[in-house]
Write a protein that binds this DNA or RNA. Sequence first.
DNA 1: CGCCAGGCCGTGT
DNA 2: ACACGGCATGGC
Length: 234
Amino acid sequence: MLKPAPGASRRLRDFYDRLVRVYGPRQWWPAKTPLEVVIGAYLTQNTAWTSVEKSIANLEARGLFTVTALREIPEAELRVLIRPSGYMIRKAAAIKAFLAFLDACYGGSIEKLAAAPAEITRPQLLALPGVGPETADAILLYALGQPAMVVDEYLRRVVTRHGLLPVKARHAEIQALAEKSFHGEEAASLARHFNEFHAVIVETGKLHCRRTPQCHLCPLAFDLARIGGEPILS
DNA sequence: CGCCAGGCCGTGT
DNA sequence: ACACGGCATGGC
């Protein structure tokens, strides 16, 4: 088991607090309805949000942001509409699989899905094709309102490059560290913090270069590293 | 042009 | 158990 560095959860909490002070609060997901959050969560996998917006506009124009409409549109047509956001074959199949699951297990109702406990729904989501931990937790948090911490590539870069966790750290370990950073919070405010954390991480994501192995060596990250006039994680 | 984007999955060690 | 390549498209 890879151990976090001493004080890692407190340092990550400080980082979060400072990010919110500068970039937040966002209380977030750029979508109008829970169903639109779900679709967006699939479409944005390894894809720029600007590309996702084109697909969403296509779906919107066809009135497809209802369970009924999405259920009825042929998969081949769905592919064409989501083409701008890439991986159209996989993503169309995955979205169709979600609708089938929603129909089979929750009567086609997002509300019923949201009412079920995450201990049940998270494994169900993870069993769907095209749903890994980030997509599952994004759906749980932003579409279903449940306290699930979303761990993405940007957060991974932050915690590993600033030495909070070893570079080998697994997804679950990063998630555990992030959740521990909010230890002692009221259950109700947990979802609000998780929402805000992922929101500001995405907001500043471009500052964590893909190539540069050390944040403090990256010119862009250097700006981020001085949030509030002092090093964020040192 | 080449790299990157709010991952996930199948395959080979 | 883990590393690695493929998946599609568009923006910069």
